[in-house]
C-alpha cells in the first residue's frame, strides 16, 4: 500500500514539474519517491511514469494541431513527426528511470 502511495506521489510530482519547468531533467526530482522500490522495479516504474506523463499531456490539445506543429518542428530540425512527438517523453522517461535507479540504490546503501 505504501509503495502505491509513493508511486502516486511520483506521478503527481512528474506532472507538476512538467507543467512548471520546461526542463526534462526535472524528472530527477520526480523520481525521488520511487526510492522505496527495488532498484530494478524503481527504474521500470520511473521510465513508465516519465514516459507516459508527458505523453498524456498531448490529449489536452486537438490532435490535428499537435501533428501540424510537430510537422513544422520536424521540418525545421529534420526529424520525422513521430520522433518529434515522443522525443521529450522518451527523454523524460529515461532520465526518470536512471534517477529512480540511483535514488533507490542510494536508499538501499543508506538502509544497510
Amino acid at each position: 500500500m505504501n509503495k502505491i502511495i509513493y508511486i502516486a506521489l511520483s506521478i503527481i510530482l512528474a506532472y507538476i514539474f512538467i507543467f512548471m519547468l520546461p526542463f526534462a531533467w526535472s524528472a530527477i526530482f520526480a523520481a525521488v519517491p520511487l526510492l522505496v522500490l527495488k532498484p530494478k522495479n524503481s527504474s521500470i516504474t520511473g521510465f513508465l511514469i516519465g514516459f507516459i506523463a508527458p505523453l498524456s499531456i498531448y490529449i489536452i490539445y486537438p490532435i490535428n494541431y499537435v501533428l501540424k506543429l510537430s510537422n513544422i518542428v520536424g521540418n525545421i530540425v529534420g526529424l520525422p513527426v513521430f520522433i518529434i512527438v515522443i522525443i521529450f517523453p522518451l527523454m523524460y522517461g529515461i532520465i526518470m528511470a536512471i534517477s529512480a535507479a540511483i535514488w533507490s540504490g542510494l536508499y538501499d546503501k543508506i538502509k544497510k
Binding site: P22, F23, Y58, I87, P89
Partner: peptide, 13 residues
Amino acid sequence: SMNFNVLNPANGA
C-alpha cells in the same frame, strides 16, 4: 535533453 525543452508538451511550443 536541454535541446528538447521546446518540445515539452505542457509549456514548450
